[in-house]
Design a protein around this nucleic acid. Structure first.
Length: 573
RNA sequence: GGACUCGUAGCCUAGCCAGGAUAGGGCACCGGCCUUCUAAGCCGGCGAUCCCGGGUUCAAAUCCCGGCGAGUCCGCCA
């Protein structure tokens, strides 16, 4: 576990450079080593930076450095070119190292040695008032991919869902559920708990315009916050049913959780009150008509209103106060706490961080923010009727994938076709979302979300299936000669496969899951070129063996990348 | 009014954090490749003032400042 061929290459090169710097009397500048266009070599760095320090033109510097850098294990030679020092890898060595590491570690290649460090990744948290829509899916997909990457990079990760079961919205649902006869509701859109229950919420929300209803719900809210145990149990019952529907949908997306945190816990266990107490005792609170707030202005928050309320005038706590209590709880259970939040929570998150500092909490919270998903015709909005349920999107994706499979594979059984279609459909949705940088706003377009060509999940799955096809028709190999790997496509592929563990680490450490998505595409694309240029089964014995090793290694690496992305690999399609 | 995020070909996007070689891809469009390991693939063509203006630097899509445009937020809601 923990093998990282690429890191070894970089370390070797950095050492070589350091030795050259010392031999030449150059300063140690630590210029980042970078992948370079293949026509120039494999890895390189600009020598321009030394120029001023040593008083020589870049090309001369590069030439001197190249002369002072001998070949070593992974690097065969160096070349000075237009002021850059370019290095060429020793492919037989890299090939040997990379292939044997992969075939040895197999499904574990790229996985770092466990550190025991505990991380909680909170994502997908919503009000349990109805089915989740495509906008929410971005949160879940980013969060789940992040979880996978962190786990692969050696952390012990808990996936957590904060159920906002406190507040007016949920209690409106409960009021509706307990007071409205089912006959008066609109028909159920889908035979699932969340769809059944949301009808009560919709109708009850509309009825809130009636002051009498509003007052009744208000009373429930107060009773709930006063700690009415019997009411709390009823609310929990409704929420649990709703959550079954929501979690079922997410599970189809391949998103699952280790823990649900029910927000009402912060009320029943007194931790929310404790937060208020600590903030008040810290002397940072002010009061207006009995409501407590912290003025955030001295801490860099600007805007129309810099007051951040932690209680209402009746003394009850607010969402952010309870969230604060929740975070303290997370701190007790972890070494790191990461949230995945929509960009509308940015300010609130800063306020929360400030509040933690005011409470003298040493720990930091961290968040990955994503821009909301919109529709070409405007914002996703329940009230505006512009909603696309995640279930509908998944159904449509699966149906479309099913048509494609059916068209090309008459030989498969119905069940096999269904299995492939689902992997393709769900994969397409996940990949389409995760491949773009979270901060970028995206517009939901059916054609795009359901596209099965180009940079999509099916493209990755297809390359995987092609590799499997070759391996199915071959025999097990015990030895191979990496010196035979001379084709440029073979070398590109080796280089990419060697980088995989580094990409896992990088993408997890910077919390940028889209980097893994893009890497997987590059890997699959390169395999397709290899597939075109390098016949495997038809090659003569020795070449056939080493190419089979490459194909098998590729299958493991892409398979592992897909696992990080939560996309199912397919033996055939 | 203030804060934050985004701005790369007709459309979408990588690269930006850690500045370096002719800015990578994908979709769409045009043309080509299935007696050879699955054509959900491959090749070629078309297409970019990297939003604008300054600055820093030997070097800026990348860093800094100022604009412009789009989005988000500034509730005793969650």
């Amino acid at each position: 576990m923990g093998v990282d061929p690429w890191q070894d290459v970089l370390t070797e090169l950095a050492n070589l450079r350091r030795e050259a710097e010392e031999a030449l009397g150059y300063p140690h500048l630590d210029i980042p080593l970078q992948l370079i266009p293949e026509e120039f070599g494999d890895v390189g760095f600009p020598a321009h930076t030394y120029s001023k320090e040593v008083g020589k033109p870049p090309q001369e510097v590069a030439e001197e450095m190249v002369a002072a850098m001998p070949p070593r294990l992974y690097v065969a030679r160096h070349e000075a070119r237009s002021g850059y020092v370019n290095s060429f890898l020793n492919y037989p060595t890299l090939g040997e190292r990379t292939l044997s590491s992969i075939l040895d570690e197999a499904n574990g290649y790229g996985k770092a040695t466990p550190t025991g460090r505990r991380v909680i990744v909170e994502h997908s948290s919503v009000n349990p008032t109805g089915p989740i829509h495509v906008g929410r899916a971005r949160n879940s997909i980013i969060g789940d991919t992040l979880y996978r990457l962190l786990e692969w990079s050696g952390l012990e990760v808990t996936r957590e869902f904060l159920v906002n079961d406190v507040g007016k919205q949920v209690l409106t649902l409960v009021w509706g559920y307990e007071n409205l006869p089912e006959e008066e509701l609109e028909p159920v859109e889908r035979e699932k708990e969340d769809y059944k229950l949301v009808r009560y919420y919709r109708k009850a929300s509309k009825m809130m315009e009636d002051p009498k209803v509003a007052e009744e719900v208000g009373q429930i809210v107060r009773r709930f916050e006063e700690g009415d145990e019997e009411l709390r149990r009823r609310v929990r019952g409704v929420c649990e049913r709703m959550m079954r529907g929501i979690l079922d949908t997410l599970s189809k997306l391949n998103v699952n959780f280790d823990n649900l945190f029910w927000e009402d816990q912060t009320i029943t266990d007194g931790s929310a009150r404790e937060v208020v107490k600590r903030l008040r005792e810290g002397g940072r609170c002010q009061e207006e008509e009995g409501a407590l707030y912290v003025d955030m202005e001295p801490y860099g928050i600007t805007g129309r209103n810099t007051r951040w309320f932690i209680t209402r005038k009746d003394g009850t706590t607010l969402y952010t106060t309870r969230d604060l209590a929740y975070h303290l709880d997370k701190f007790r259970r972890s070494d790191e706490a990461i949230n995945v939040l929509g960009e509308d929570h940015r300010l609130e998150f800063r306020q929360l961080s400030i509040a933690l500092k005011l409470m003298k909490v040493e720990r930091e919270v961290e968040s990955v923010f994503y821009a909301h998903v919109g529709l070409p015709e405007g914002r996703l909005s329940t009230r505006g009727g512009r909603v696309i349920n995640l279930d509908d999107l998944m159904d449509e994706a699966n149906a479309r994938a099913y048509r494609e499979v059916r068209e090309r594979r008459e030989d498969l059984s119905e069940e096999e076709m269904r299995t492939i279609a689902e992997a393709v459909g769900i994969g397409a949705i996940r990949y389409n979302i995760v491949k773009v940088q979270p901060e970028k706003k995206i517009l939901f377009r059916w054609e795009e979300a359901l596209s099965l060509e180009g940079q999509t999940a099916p493209f990755l799955q297809y390359s995987y299936a092609r590799a499997c096809g070759i391996l199915r028709k071959s025999e097990a190999i015990d030895s191979w000669d990496p010196r035979l790997l001379e084709n440029p496509q073979e070398r590109s592929l080796l280089k990419l496969m060697a980088r995989f563990p580094s990409v896992v680490k990088e993408s997890a450490a910077t919390r940028r899951p889209h980097q893994m998505a893009n890497f997987a595409y590059e890997l699959a694309k390169t395999f397709n070129l290899f597939y075109r240029d390098c016949p495997v089964l038809r090659s003569e014995e020795a070449l056939r063996r080493v190419r089979l090793a490459v194909v098998e290694a590729f299958r493991f690496v892409l398979g592992n990348a897909l696992k990080c992305l939560g996309i199912k690999a397919l033996e055939e399609m």
